[in-house]
């Protein structure tokens, strides 16, 4: 039976973030936390594999206890079980520390044949997690997967299409393999009522730093993160451009049109 892991993340809905004009800080209050949209596509791809070849789909996320809601959303869409890696010690982690933490926590439950990730997160948007997790798992990797053509569990290979600049590659990769998923062919699954009910009752396994034998505390959270953010600043706004207002839309557009033609 294929053991499938899907790595997901709960993110702030960045489109609703606002900056405090006084302090220049981001106002996070009231901004909803959502399942990273591209992770829903990764889950969808994992479920497609399960439907065709059988297997068990395990979710894993790292975040505050509230990240549980993102896991329940994925359970409702069809995942079998979920692991929440949560502990203050994991906080403030960059992609390097996060990849180490997640891989260490995932391996408590043994090895996985296939690992799925979204292409990037809405908030950090580095797109690095897939490759770094693959390194931690010692797995082959297919980043930018358009389509999974075949999984051959006996031969321990997967055949998949990968989007590259200007074309599409068809690759055969050995298992274990990590895939980051393009959303094109794997639309997010809409949970049905039965799924929602099941998700509500599902037990979510929680893992703290103390639960992971051999975890190097120097490699997690802030101490384990080589990248730092020494400062943030509001984007410098240039002077406002010339606003054309000739009294009516017709007149304003006519003015704009003459300006475009004149350039």
């Amino acid at each position: 039976m294929l053991r499938i892991l899907v790595c997901v993340k709960q993110v702030p809905d960045v489109d609703q973030l606002r900056m405090d004009p006084e302090t220049g800080n981001l106002i996070r209050e009231g901004v909803p936390a959502i399942l990273n949209p591209l992770d829903a596509n990764a889950l969808s791809a994992a479920l497609s594999v399960k439907e065709e070849y059988g297997g068990e789909v395990t979710l894993i996320t790292m975040g505050p206890p509230a990240a549980e809601s993102a896991l329940r959303e994925c359970l409702a869409a069809g995942a079998d079980r979920a692991v929440l890696v949560t502990d203050r010690a994991f906080g403030n982690a960059d992609t390097l520390a996060t990849s180490y933490s997640i891989a260490m926590a995932a391996q408590l439950d043994g090895e996985y044949d296939l690992i799925f990730c979204g292409k990037e997160s809405l908030d950090g948007a580095t797109g690095q997690m897939g490759a770094q997790l693959a390194e931690r798992f010692g797995a082959a990797q297919v980043t930018g997967t358009l389509k999974i053509e075949q999984v051959d569990e006996a031969a321990r290979v997967i055949r998949a299409q990968r989007e590259v600049d200007g074309g599409v590659e068809t690759l055969e990769a050995e298992l274990p393999c990590l895939l980051t998923i393009e959303k094109k062919n794997y639309p997010a699954r809409i949970p049905n009522l039965k799924g929602k009910l099941r998700a509500k009752k599902a037990e979510i396994k929680t893992v703290s730093s103390a639960d992971i034998p051999g975890l190097d505390l120097g490699r997690i959270g802030d101490p384990g993160s080589p990248t730092k953010v020494p400062r943030m600043f509001p984007p410098e706004l240039p002077e406002r451009g010339e606003i054309i207002d000739e009294g009516s839309i017709e007149a304003s557009v006519a003015k704009l049109y003459s300006l475009i033609k004149g350039e």
């Binding site: 960059d94 490759a131 770094q132 390194e135 990797q141 980043t143 590259v164 490699r219 990248t227």
Partner: peptide
Amino acid sequence: ATANGRDFAPRFAARLETGCTSD
């Protein structure tokens, strides 16, 4: 940050245990 650049750069940075930034 081409398809292939984004594929290997974070991975060798992880193997070296150093930091990687993007974009």
